[in-house]
Design a protein around this nucleic acid. Structure first.
Lengths: 200, 200
DNA sequence: TGAAAAAGTGAATGCTAGTTCACTATTTGG
DNA sequence: CCAAATAGTGAACTAGCATTCACTTTTTCA
């Protein structure tokens, strides 16, 4: 008879998987992608390196998951702002400000997900994540155009520009070496004003 | 007596060095950074791999040179626009449009210098190059603020945002897989309008 | 011309993780 | 409890290139 995983086993498998992702994220937030090697992830998760490969076919796959999980959380928050009350201007401003503020709070993680040099495979995932953020901003821009708050414009291009603008503005301040966040609020204000002005 | 290089030898050395850089650039523009390995560069330049190391201490150093040489050329062009006639708006618009247009013309090279995943060392140089571009845009923004064409703003942040905006908008269209440049002029217009509107 | 010093060669080396796999441990269902 | 199946182990394997280095060729200059 075919073997079937018990409930308990199922839970263990699921929790292992989560543990692996959590371990990877922890390592990234502490030492950047650079220090998040498979062996370290395994030991942090309390497993062997071999076991990781029962859960993820490759390192790239694992980190794509980590990346997406982190991005998911950000996008939930951004969507809350996008679908919330207020004019399109306000919502765009708040969404950008929120992203920048959160990135400045967790600089290592943000840096890893925005700019840290990595292997090609993981880097590709990063580009895809940027596009996911783009979708969020497309929604705001569209609604702003609909009610004439914003000029008509190429929504895809503008969304890409917004994502590029705030990520680039973050690179300096969150880079591990620089750490020159002397005036957070100033930067947040500058970047969000820039983005709002750009689409109005 | 100490040996001294003859004029002829000096010329040969110089031309070898140029040849190496040119070979590296050619390979990048054909197959991206991915295919520009040292052996390929050497053979393209008509030298052995060992010889490369008489000219550059490491692969990273070589490609930093290649990167900077390419960026130098772009910056000369941009400076021409920045220091040229016209309002700050016009100059900003033209500078962005010029950059985007040129990037679309040489997509492989542009992609390599903007977004292609590479080793960490080269990637770091890329970030520095972005800052060099930032300087160009700071100059325009400052002049626009001075003559009240642009609102007062955080010049550093705005410049970073502009660089981020147009590079990000390029990533999709110039990525080797996508190649969706169906309407160049539209994109150019969209991106430059975005940047101008953002600082006005 | 010849001997010392550079320049150039390219096969061999080395290194860094990611990945595999022969093996052990645990779980499953009768 | 037993045998089949799955989960987990971690040392060994691999691969891909950058880099080196013992050696050859060319250049320099008395």
């Amino acid at each position: 008879m075919a073997y079937q995983r018990s409930k308990r086993m199922e839970r263990r498998i699921a929790s292992n998987r989560e543990g692996i992702v959590a371990a990877a994220r922890l390592l990234v937030s502490k030492g950047g992608l650079r220090e998040a090697r498979m062996e370290a992830v395994a030991s942090e998760a309390g497993l062997s390196t071999g076991a990781l490969y029962r859960y993820f076919p490759s390192k790239a796959d694992l980190f794509v998951d980590v990346l997406n999980a982190a991005v998911d959380r950000e996008i939930v928050i951004l969507d809350g702002i996008v679908d919330g009350p207020g004019s399109a201007r306000e919502r765009l401003n708040d969404a950008v400000a929120c992203f920048v503020r959160r990135a400045l709070r967790g600089p290592n993680l943000a840096y890893a997900f925005i700019a840290e040099p990595t292997e090609a495979d993981v880097d590709e995932a990063r580009i895809l994540c940027r596009m996911r953020f783009g979708e969020v901003f497309k929604a705001i821009i569209r609604s702003g155009i609909e009610n004439s708050e914003f000029r008509t414009q190429d929504v895809d291009a503008s969304a890409a520009c917004i994502v590029g603008a705030f990520t680039e503005a973050l690179v300096g301040p969150i880079a591990p070496s620089t750490r020159g966040i002397e005036d957070e609020d100033r930067l947040i204000g500058a970047v969000s004003s820039f983005c709002v002005a750009a689409v109005v």
